[in-house]
Each structure stands twice: as structure tokens, then as C-alpha cells.
Design a protein around this nucleic acid. Sequence first.
RNA 1: GGGUGUGUAGCUCAGCUGGUUAGAGCGCUACGUUCACAUCGUAGAGGUCACAAGUUCAAGUCUUGUCACACCUACCA
Length: 869
Amino acid sequence: MSYKEEPGLDKQFNAEEIEKRCDAYWSANEIYKYDATQSRDNSFVIDTPPPTASGSLHIGHIFSYTQTDIIARYQRMQGKSVFYPIGWDDNGLPTERRVQNYYNIACNPKIPYDQTFKPVHIDNDKNERREISRKNFIEACETLIAEDEKIFENVFRRIGHSYDWNLTYSTISPTSIKISQASFLDLYQKGKVVAVEAPIMWDVTFKSAVSQAEVEDKEMEGFFHDIRFSVKDSNETFIIATTRPELLASCLAIVAHPDDERYKHLFGKTAIVPLFDIPVPIVPSEHAEKDKGTGIMMVCTFGDAADVTWWKKSGLPIKQIIGLDGKIMNITYGEGVFNTLNKEEAQKNFNQIIGLPAHIAKKKVAEMLKEQGFLIGEPKKIVHPVKFYEKGNLPLEFVSSRQWFVKLMDMKDEMLSAGRKIKWLPSYMQHRYETWTEGLNQDWCISRQRYFGVPFPVWYKVDANGNIDYSQVILPSKDRLPIDPMADAPNGYTEAQRNQPNGFVGDPDVMDTWATSSLTPQIAMAMAPKGSNLSLPFDIRPQAHDIIRTWAFYTIAKSLMHENTIPWHKTLISGFILDPDRKKMSKSKGNVVTPMNLIEAHSADAVRYWAAKAKLGVDTAFDEKMMQQGRKLIVKIYNASKFVFMIVGNSASADYAQNISAALDKSWLKKLADTVNSARRSFENYDYALALDSIETRFWDFCDNYVEIVKKRAYSEDNASAIATLKLSLDTFVKLFAPFCPFITEEVYQARPWKQPSDISVHKELWTSLDILQTVSAKDSLLYDTISAVSAEIRKQKTFENKSQKNPVLSLVVKAGEQAISCLKANDSDLINVGNIADHGITYQVAPELCVEKIMLDQNFVPEKKKVG
RNA sequence: GGGUGUGUAGCUCAGCUGGUUAGAGCGCUACGUUCACAUCGUAGAGGUCACAAGUUCAAGUCUUGUCACACCUACCA
């Protein structure tokens, strides 16, 4: 496919046309296709973050993903075969929630599959959510993510990200499920993943287990209740201050610090829990602090993580009173673990809270305590941090349940040393990884009681009595993956034996979404063409800093467990986009600017320019001014190119280097060569922002100075050197800017009169082709620097005297170092041209510093236009 | 409580391993230009480089301390 019908540049710059033209051309010619025949050494392999397919892309995505694209494009122009996949993270809770709202449906696994059901988008429906089967629900999820992903793709194409779209993956695809399930089987075999019945953090809204990484603290209002406990066979009482009175019924013990003089004498005695008359031991424990509350506290199952720790050591049974729905369970006193000294009274009181949600039960218990005289004074308001699931809106509960865990606690040291083998950019981001790893206090709970995710490839045997025997795990062979144990029967069984005595049941849970996301390198590799030389570690993992503890951490963990290596050599951590008021941008504020609007308003290259200006890891305030600046640069590139084309005219020869002979041209090219070197150095350090800075500065220098100086000579007969230099300069800038502004550079590249049939795309060009600058340029840029400086002084003087730039200069004195003077004397024709200086008008003097004096302008000069007026 | 980062012109930010009178863009003021330029140029106003002490011939840049903000992490009866 050819690039454009009409050759050359249009009179007017039209960003949208150029963007669409480029996208079509790149895709038709597979410019960004990964070349699987290249060796690993000659490849650059990227573990791209798959954005969550939950509606729309945020401007923050454009920001950080563009930074990666710039790096990918630079590496491609270094001759590397760039492995640059893109994926969609579409499994898990975010998708489920979006689907529920979008179609106003809810999943009920008990309902049978309805073949005729078609999900329809329903806006603002007040009706109750329609309940559908698990299979229908999953199909609805698949329908919506397909739509969302199309929109994402359009935005990424429009902004010019150079993904190889053949490598697109989705985390819910059969391939991803297969890889994720194979990972599970591998870890199971290695003893790294185990199912245990244990207290876990439970979100009551989503009715699912969550992991430590998904938990965040929220500052919550709470109340300290001072409750009087009595001591068995004694008149003594003591006061406990608690924020969780509803847990009284699950109290296991009373603890105080071993050295606490106030309570020492109570150790070994038995306390009586009010309302329920439960006898519990009073014991010393280090984890009680003397100066918190009243210094003495109750241990319940479970108020917090400390209770869990204490309970584990105690060997006491669990008294679970909060159910998985977050409500108080129906409990009969005097049965099982629920002992009491007064069965009737305990039951009467407990009956008052059965079925209530925990936060309402709390109030009810407080009332009862008050009525019966156990509450001292009024509850005291406090604000304290409470653990929440990051997406939940009710506090987490600790409940005991059977879940799958990946054993991480025994590999913390290994994780830390792996983290040190990876280069973190910026380096301080490694601290976050280290603190998180050091602070890890539980294994990774990977089972979720949800629907849209990767199922556990696990069945359990059902015994002769119809009871599930969790110790009898049935696993599929790897060649059966992907598998859904809720739909497929294990080998040796038939579907008819499901849920039957001596039959089997499938594990109904799905995996934590991170259990799959942590395999993005493996998933991406699965998308590569056959015969690829890919392997871990990859070169880079770009990602944002908020998911260091999840995505980065889990990917490193899985890579170590499966392949015994780090997953990538470097990780590039991007910053956030902040509101202009420096708050984290959020949709809820309603001030969201969508990426597409910005692209339309400023052009894709301009939006990219804004992203390219920010350094890695730095949170940046959103600023449209920066896009306007980018737009100016792009228009300038367009116009400068048009001008060069005009001067160059029909000189279509691409073999220009040998014509470069003028001293000024060589001196300018030295300047340009230095810029190439410094930009290359910056890029090698992944400092694309610094590279852009130096390129941009040199480009404006080119426009403002070199082009002005050489203009007259370029129009003259003796213009071969000037024309060759303009060509070489423009070719150079187009390549230098290509990673940042892929559209305008491609447009100019394709429009060059000296374009050769072998010139496919600027994005296939090599930076090594810029080495020609080194051979044709002068040893130094002294001549160019001097002429630029002198002409700037002349320009200044003309402006100061309100004269036209064409106004002749009768005479001036140039003072400069010996070398500069001799160099200038021999090559002053360009200076005379640009300043319009009279013959023999320049007086040269050797001086320590460059200085221009006594500029005499021709006061009789009248610009042409003013003659008319 | 522990830790990391940030604090430079009205705004958004550069300033790499310490080196001459601290920079850019935008904004503002004044003037000019319309030449490839949905422009550009020149000049001006505007900074005690958060604060304090120290090291050094020399500190925005290094050290220590203080303050403010952001974030990470822990605790959370």
C-alpha cells in the first residue's frame, strides 16, 4: 500500500487526516510486526500492562503508555526486533461490576442456563436486577468486554502506540485460562499452593475472600465502649474498652500485658463476659499494650489480625458468630463451643441480634449493655483506621473458611533478593517493593467466590454418604486445559456423577485476577509466532507505582516459582496524572477529559509530547498548555519541512553527503551531531524526556538560526552545500522526533522529494544512519556558534531601533577570541547575507569574550511595503 | 511509629556527577514582523532556588537538622 496519492505536503496541516493515513499505512505494511527470526539479543521484549477493560481509558493510561511507546520506538530504531504486545485485563471483579450495572443483571449460580437470553444495555434502571445463570452471566461479560476492547483499540491506534496487534491477548481468553491453570497445577505439584481452612479476610458485600494486597485502611468513626466484666468467684470487676461490642459473644479470652501491675493478680482467674455469661480465661500476653484503652482487652474470633495471631497460638476453638453474609449467625447456647454459665439469659440476649448485620448488631449490643448496667458512661467517639477491601464499602471481617493459598511467607528473602536483581526506574521505587515484601504477613489467598475469572482446575471426591471429601482432590492432566470443573467432568467420571455419592464436585471458585495477571510474560509469549526466541527475563516491565505490591510483586513471585528467574531486567515505574489542583484524578469528580477529545483538540503528536515531557515516576498535574506547546512544535516541523522542500525543489538525489562543503554547514552539523549523541545517551538511560529536550532545543535553533543564516545562499546558484545540509538536517530531525511524534514525522518522511523507493517508513529507519553526521561535520561548531551569536545581536539591534530585519547594516565591530575571528574572517559571507551587511562593513578585533559593538544601521532604508503606504 | 519523594519566576516544570550574572514554556507589559510559520522576533517586569547550620576556593546541586505537602508501610482494644 502506498502512503498517499498526492506527493508532498498539503498547504494546511491537518492532524486528523495524517493520523488516519498513518494508522492505515502502518497496519497495512505491518511496520510494527515483531520479527520472530531475530535472536533474543537482538530483540527488545516488553511486558506491557494490560489495561482493565472497564469502560473507558483514562488520560493517565495515555500518559504512561505513551512513555513506553516512545521507548519501544527508540529501540526499534536501534535495529531491535521489538516484542510489544498489548492485552486486556478483562477477568475479575471490575468486569463483573460493570456488567451488572450495564445490563442490570446479577449472577445466581442456582438458576439454569437460558439459551434465549440476550444482554441489553439498560440505563438508570430502577428495577431490581434480573438474576441469570452463571453461564449467561459469563456470556454477558464476554459481550461487553468485546465492545469495550474495540474502543480501547481505537484510542491506542489513534494515539500511535506501536503495538504488534497480532500479539493482542486477553486475561480471560482460553489461552490465558490454560496458562493460569497450568501455573496452578505446577505450583500444586511443587507444594507451593495449598488449600487450608483458616481465618481469612472476607468482604461481606462481594461475599468473597480477599488478599492482603487488596486491603486498604480507611479512617472511620467508631466508638469506644467501656464494658464492665466480672471475675468468677470474686467481687472484682474490670473495664474493657472496645470498639466491637458485637463480638462479645465470640470472646475467647481476656488478655493484659504480663508486666501490667493493675491486672497481674487476675492472671489465671476466669472472667465472665457480660450478657452471655461466658467464662473465659484471663491470661498475660505481650501484644496487649498498657497505655491503650484500659490496658486490658478481649480476644474474639475475630476482631482483627492480632486476634487471629493470638488464636493460632492459643489452640482454642473458633467461636464464629458473623456469617459470610456479614450478619450474625443463628447460634444455640450450650451447644458446641458456645458454653455459658446461664444458658437461658445468654440465649435471650443473643436472640436479639441474630440475623442483624454486624454494624447494627453493634448498636443493639451497646443498648443491651447499657440497659443491664454493664456499660460505663457513654460510648466515646474516636476516628481510627479500619481495614477495607479496596473496592468494598463495608469493613472486612475475619472469618474462617477454606481457601487456596500460595505460600509466600517462606520465600520473602528470595523475593527481596530478586527485587535487587531488577533495575527499578526511578530507583527509589524499589523501596516500596522492599517495604511491602518485608511487611507481608500472610500467604497469598488466591480463591475468590466469584464467577467471571479463571476457574480452579480442581474437583473433589464425594463419599458414599454424599459428603464432599476435600482431602480427595482430583486434578486434570495438563492437556485437558483449559477446563471448567463446573461444566467438565474429571477423567474416569461422567457428568451424571456430579454431586452424587461416590461421585465428584467441581471447585466453584475462581482465582484472584492477579493470579492470572502475574503471568503476563507467559501469556504474551504464548501469542508470539512459532519459532520465537523468547524467554524470561524480558527487558522491561512498565507499570504504575500503585500496583507494585500486586502486579510487580506477584509477577516476580510466579517467575521465581515457575522459572526460577526474575521476570524482567528492568521495571519502569510511571507517575500518576493529577488534577490541576494536584489531587489524584478520579471519575467521580466529573471533570474527566477523555483522551479522544484531547487528541482531536491538539493532535495525537501533541498529546504524546505532553506525556514525553514528564519523567518516569513523577506525578504530573494535568496541563493542556503543554499540549498546545506540543502542537506548536508539530506545526513548526510541518512548516520547516515545507520550506526545505521548497528550497530543495526538484533536487531529488538522496546522495547528498558529498556535497556538503561549506564551513558553516559543517560547523552546524557538528552541533546537530552532538545533539544526536546526547539524545542517544539520554535514551540509553530511559530518560526520554531529557532526550526530547535536547532535540527540541536544537530544532528551534535550526529554524531560528541555521535556516535564516543559510537562506540567501540556498536561493543562490552556489547552493549545493546548503541544500545538502538542509536535507541532511531535516532527515536527522525527522528520525530524532520519530519516537515522540510518529505522525508528523511519517508525513514529512513520506513527502520528501528525495525519498527513495526503499524508504518504507521513518519508523523502520535506524539511528545508526545518523552516524553520517560524524563524518561530514566539522571538528567543532565554533563558526556556527559565532555567526549565530553575531546575527542575533544584529537582529536585536534592528528590533531595538524598530527597523525591519532587512535593513542594511553599514558597519559593526565584532570582538571575539583569536580562533573565532580567524575562522569567521575566512567564512563571513553567510553572516553578511543574514545581517544584510555592507561590503567591508565588519571590523574584527581579537578579545577575550565575544562581543558585538557599534552596529550602524542604514537609516535611509525603507522597507518595500512602507514605500507603498 | 518507620520509610520514600517533593518543595526553584504568577502557573507547569528543567537544572546530569557542585563551577562564571539561576533556565524553558505558558501567562503578563511594550514594541516590531507577516518572509516556510493557525506565526515569529526583541525587550521588560517577576526568584532571599522552603528554612537553618555545616563542608568547600566555589552549593539550587553535598552533609545535618527543621518545616510543609504527597505517597508507601505499620499499628489500630
